[in-house]
Amino acid sequence: MKPLVMRIVFWSVLVAALAILAGVVYEQYGRYRAARDFPAPGKMVDIGGGRRIQLDCRGAGSPTVVFEDGLSIDGSLSWAAVQPAVAQRTRACSYSRAGLMWSDASNAPRSAKQVAQDLREALMRAGERGPFVLVGQSLGGLYATTFTRYFGSEVAGLVLVDPSHPDQVARVAAFMTETRSLRSRIAVSLAWTGLLRAAAPSLLPQAPNQTEHDAQAVRAFAPKSMVTQMAEGDATDAVLAEAGAFRDLGSRPLVVLTAMAPYTGSELRGMQITPEQGVQVQAIWEKMHEEMAAWSSRSAHRLLPKAGHDIQFDDPRAVVEAVLSVVEAVRAEGGTPPG
């Protein structure tokens, strides 16, 4: 009986080892195909320290619009439905933060200041010069204001697309507490086995106004990007506290866009709140954006009743109009960043 048990254990271990090896090979081949089939749009900019950042700049004119993604894995592709229209009127640059899509990962501690420094280094080394109009969605809105904090002489205006607020965790604590799925953590930790790549098509559906090509590119790089996204999510509280130290945008033209479409059933389940509580959370969200609009003496706050949090996909025209309104305001005043 004992030899039989030993044989069962041996073959079980062997099958498991072969399955893991097959998964590793599948993942490595997937990464090779991702780089081959989806080359980086724009160019890869060497920012020093052995790292490169993907930067995609199009069009001509001043000021230069710079897009900053939120806490997602889309990188520069988050703005694919917006950037071309803006590039018809002025210079427009999107990029992927360190560790997202094509960009190399960073070993530096995650902070809003580090994101700002990486972005500026990429812009400078690529020959892109201000004045800049910064466009940031969700957490990217606070990355944009942090860039303004450290490089304010180069920032002429901003558009904040359903931005995060430094006090958002405390303000909605009565309704919901932030949770990070253990299932997601396990999936990300096993990315090297190919499991995450195999599940990507079902986990990452195509967004509204997103091309099939872009959706496939995001899925192809998902095992890499989701590791970065998880780390960025873990650092969110620290980033909110860091960004909250700067709330003065002077007289720079500013537009704040707020998504006001009712939360979907899946969103409510994800936040673990009722539809009634969802209405209350949205009211708090709107109030926080009113406060952010007051960070500049020349601002507009626009509510978008049919758009969800990813306004750049749900209502790209609204984002384009907001960006171009700030571009025209900057041009009217000669392009000099106001204090």
Rank of each mutant, 00 (worst) to 15 (best):
T264K: 12
A207N: 06
W285V: 00
Q280H: 06
P253A: 11
D46W: 01
V24A: 10
V115H: 12
F221C: 05
M44F: 02
L139K: 01
V239W: 08
F67R: 00
W192C: 00
W295H: 07
A19K: 06
Q168A: 07
A293R: 07
P338Y: 04
S181R: 08
F313S: 12
A318V: 06
V255G: 06
S78P: 02
G30H: 04
E321C: 05
T211K: 00
Q277T: 02
A259W: 03
R252F: 13
K2I: 12
G127W: 02
L303S: 08
D162K: 10
P39C: 02
D310E: 10
I186C: 03
D56P: 05
E333I: 01
A283S: 12
A318C: 06
G23M: 09
V326L: 03
L257F: 09
A116H: 02
R269V: 12
G233M: 08
R183Y: 07
D37E: 15
D315A: 15
V327S: 04
A92T: 02
L158A: 09
A17S: 14
G48K: 13
Y26A: 08
V159N: 08
G157M: 06
K306A: 11
A17K: 06
D74G: 02
A318G: 07
T336V: 15
G127C: 00
I20L: 14
L203S: 06
E68K: 01
R185D: 12
S297R: 14
V15P: 04
H309K: 08
D46E: 12
A238Q: 12
L254E: 00
S106K: 11
A85L: 08
R31M: 04
A322F: 01
